[in-house]
């Protein structure tokens, strides 16, 4: 898991902040006095969601739901009246650990939640946020829906493809980037919106792309 450094949003692509005037540091999110780690523990037992991150460092072979992840999984179960309802958060958690949801993961999750593997596959494939195959360290999702599109999203997408040297939906050779088109990310007033792992980048113009890509590459070094 990559480390987090306060006040340097680019250092932690797992953290969702903003660029420019919307930039939220972790301190701002919690309040000025907040110091602490990302709540891997998963929040209040009955309330706050156990929020999976899409992290740059993925461990496809990692053991699932052990140690702190076991605790988070158990917390998830307490929040719903049925085990089935824990399926989406549990898949999210599995993806946070492994970076994608493969058949073996589905099988394990099915076993944990007493569901059939086929059922879990059906649910997993319904939702776009579960990566069914490995993706790059950075999953770049460029919104090209109507509002962003009107403001040049197609060009932003093309520029991302150029600077990451990859094809749409493919992972770049260095394993750093997978660039895909996204549907509306609900940041239409701040076009173009680009989601990179967990983080939204708003008001992205083609001119910003090179800088973003360079910075992300540096984090990888």
């Amino acid at each position: 898991m990559s480390g987090r450094s306060k006040g340097a949003p680019f250092k932690n692509p797992g953290w969702a902040g903003n660029t420019g005037e919307f930039d939220l540091s972790e301190a701002q999110v919690r309040g000025d006095d907040f110091v602490g780690e990302r709540p891997k523990h998963g929040g209040h037992a009955s309330g706050a969601g156990t929020l999976p991150y899409m992290l740059a460092d993925k461990e496809p072979e990692a053991r699932l739901f052990e140690g702190e992840y076991q605790q988070r999984f158990e917390k998830i179960l307490t929040r719903y009246p049925t085990k089935r309802a824990a399926l989406l958060p549990t898949l999210g958690l599995a993806q946070e650990i492994r970076g994608h949801v493969n058949p073996e993961t589905m099988d394990r999750v099915a076993e944990l939640l007493e569901l059939s593997p086929a059922y879990v596959r059906g649910v997993t494939t319904f939702y776009t946020m579960y990566n069914k195959a490995p993706v790059g360290r950075y999953l770049v999702q460029v919104c090209t829906n109507i509002s962003c599109n009107l403001c040049g999203a197609d060009e932003v997408l093309a520029t991302f493809l150029r600077y990451t040297d990859t094809e749409l939906g493919e992972t770049s050779e260095d394993g750093n980037f997978t660039v895909i088109e996204a549907e509306c990310l609900a940041a239409c007033g701040f076009p173009t919106c680009v989601q990179i792992n967990s983080r939204y980048y708003e008001n992205v113009t083609p001119a910003d792309v090179q800088k973003i890509v360079e910075q992300l590459k540096k984090v990888g070094d």
Binding site: M106, L115, A118, T125
Partner: peptide, 26 residues
Amino acid sequence: SEVEKDERLTVVERGNRSVIDTFFDE
């Protein structure tokens, strides 16, 4: 799922890409 109660089949994907399938090779 309802009669045999052995949920081997599912709809995979969604929308126009929906297709009936089992759990991979199962």
